[in-house]
Amino acid sequence: MMTVGSQVKTCYASIKNIEATLGILANQTNEVDARNAYRETQEMITEIKNDLEKQVLTLAREEPQYNQ
């Protein structure tokens, strides 16, 4: 069974994936508008990622069985 900790961790990984993909798209496009949009979204996602990272650490501490 997936514990809450592992679920949050999966979500955290997906968020990191989104962040990286946005970075790739921003580099691929040669449209200035699109590049700025991708970069701005990437920044928003980074904020979410930082929040989630803290949560992942907290949960890891609260669910010791998950660390084993």
């Binding site: 997906s14 993909t21 979410i48």
Partner: peptide, 23 residues
């Protein structure tokens, strides 16, 4: 790449909402 990204974003958004309700 792009449809996949959008799908992942939607999934994560739904997940976060669920976590919020569950905790």
């Amino acid at each position: 790449q792009k449809p996949l990204l959008l799908a992942t974003m939607n999934k994560c958004q739904a997940d976060l909402e669920l976590f919020g309700l569950a905790t």
